[in-house]
Amino acid sequence: MLLPDPDDRSDAIAEWVSVEILPHEREARRWLTRSRLPVETDDIIQEAYARIAALDSVSHIRNGRGYFLATVRSLALQHLRRTKIIRMDYLADLALSQIGDDRPGPEAIVWSRHEIQRLILSLPERCRDIFHLCRIKGYTQKEAAEALGISENVVEKQIARAMEILTVRFSRDGDAS
């Protein structure tokens, strides 16, 4: 088959997202919270990622942060128009115009690496060890199970648990909005 494997394509996009988008997710979440728009933050963030997932390629996007923040802003406006509330106070009005006006700094990228390290360290010990073997060292499920003398089923469960903790906590500032 000559067509590119859709899995390869989405893998390349996920790779790009991990560098260009994830560091700025927190900024987008905070902006949504601060804007006090009557919209659901999680929905908008997920839909913004869905826009990227639907792309054939991301090579045309020069500035991931700008792209992501602009997408979040336009989705927030769409959601807002769907609600029955017409009046927005001036803060929301203003905050809308302000997203992404700050200079992007290397802080965001450093922060994202730091955040993920912090979350990995926060995993329960066994969960963290299994995650290390499979994710970082590249063991297969079977190899990890044999190495640790546990069933493959346990490996699968613990990996799911690790991923759940990382994805639910990443960028969410303690308690979920």
């Binding site: 997202v17 991990s18 839909e47 997932a53 690496r113």
Partner: peptide
């Protein structure tokens, strides 16, 4: 599952990217 709701596709992409970030952060460390 990914096709059932755009939010599913978005959330899945995010989760895979977070997994990749974990490897990167580790390697740099």
């Amino acid at each position: 599952w990914r096709a059932a709701d755009p939010r599913h596709a978005g959330s899945y992409l995010r989760a895979v990217a977070i997994g990749k970030l974990a490897v990167k952060a580790h390697t740099e460390d």
